[in-house]
Design a protein around this nucleic acid. Structure first.
Lengths: 241, 241
DNA sequence: GAGTGGTCTAGACCACAGC
DNA sequence: CTGTGGTCTAGACCACTCG
């Protein structure tokens, strides 16, 4: 009747259960998981099967395994932001997290594009955030960020200056929203007047547009971010293996 | 005296031996490897240890494992080119390999930049190739490719029109040079006259520059490619996991 | 030394491809 | 039916961390 073979290895079933725990917040970022043998007992499988599930989750960067210490729920640290979620680096090879200067922060009703990308109904409330970012000393990125307001209660009540530079860590610590995965679409675009001016460029200057949708571990879109970057002296790095 | 702990798991030693076979051409693209048990016998380890080495090589896309059939050396097919090595896709989500139109093909002495990137001595011979590429029906990419001439004997002797669109497959089949890995650096740049004209753009129009260095399995750089792309209606995709 | 993850082994059985 | 890779188990031992 169906056609789907629907055979699912044990270790994948175990993995699904673990993902559910991560998504539900039963296991929180930074926490240590029970040992492999404890988990094996709990799930009624052998330690080897648990290990295979854990290894896959670690490969997806959802867990951190440390020999001799234990298995920990991955956490958004500065290091992770820098090496995992920020791909713009200086042409010299140096990496540094860019500073940020807030331009505006407001709550509004989602337009069609925002609603579609974030999986909301048109008219749902979203938080819109604009800021400039600095590569080295130079203002080089104009950034627009859109969040579903329902997931971030009280976000706009805070003074603009309070919203920190490292947003993913902030989402995680303050709202329990962990970004696990993102898809970036890159284009070259011409700078518009409102972007060119703060970046010290002429209208029409080439900018690298990075259009990012970020997702939680259970697949909900939680942030839409569009960064327009002056890539003089910097580049976006992408490794193909 | 030394400080390096230098403990190396068996499966990594086995993996190294296998990589050497791949690099040497003892195992050629498309070929089937011996079965896990045969390999285990040959290397004097258990089948589980061989499996772990094979799994890592498969994860690096150096091998293809097919249940019920065997383990095969990865090969550059159109599919692989499309999904693995070509990241420009239409904004609609459609993917298609771009056509190519050769502009020029010549042998010359490497300049400093070419020599440095390809790990050659200045003055070594390189092959320079320029072409235009089509996204859909539109000429949208201006591409410059540089190869170490020593690895591709007779390349420039062929009529330009003979050099095929899918270069990586051609390198592999004709010269036994397999591209296993690449690093791409992306920037937004302004179109120069010689680029703008064939692309039907104004001077200074924004282009996405993709600067790629491609490596063999044993880490030698074998191609430097710089593509400048008109990204109207297309984008470069990058997934962060 | 006790506890954790990492490696290695050996054997049984399952899913899949192809003759 | 046979051969391949894929899963699952159980047990031994190794490397690392920390008290």
């Amino acid at each position: 009747m169906d056609g789907t073979p629907d055979f699912k290895p044990l270790y994948l079933q175990v993995k699904d259960l673990m993902v559910r725990r991560l998504a539900s917040g039963a296991w929180r970022p930074g926490e240590a998981l029970p040992s492999e043998f404890q988990l094996a007992d709990e799930f009624g499988v052998s330690q080897g099967t648990v290990r295979k599930a854990l290894d896959e989750l670690a490969a997806q960067n959802l867990l951190d395994r440390k020999q001799g210490k234990g298995t920990f729920v991955a956490q958004h640290t500065a290091q992770r932001a820098l090496f995992h979620f920020f791909h713009l680096i200086a042409d010299t090879g140096e990496r540094a997290l860019p500073g940020a200067r807030m331009l505006s922060l407001a709550k509004a009703k989602a337009d069609r594009g925002e609603a579609m990308r974030l999986g909301l109904r048109t008219g749902s409330l979203v938080i819109r955030l604009k800021r400039l970012r600095l590569l080295g000393q130079r203002v080089a990125i104009h950034e627009r960020i859109v969040l579903p307001a329902a997931l971030f209660p009280g976000f706009t009540d805070r003074l603009s200056v309070d919203v920190p530079n490292e947003l993913y860590r902030y989402y995680e610590e303050r709202y329990g929203v962990t970004v696990a995965r993102a898809v970036e679409k890159l284009k070259a675009v011409a700078a518009r007047p409102d972007e060119a001016k703060p970046l010290g460029l002429k209208n029409g200057a080439p900018l690298l547009e990075i259009d990012r949708l970020a997702y939680t571990v259970d697949g909900r879109a939680v942030e839409w971010r569009r960064s327009r970057c002056d890539t003089a002296g910097h580049h976006y790095i992408s490794e193909i293996v």
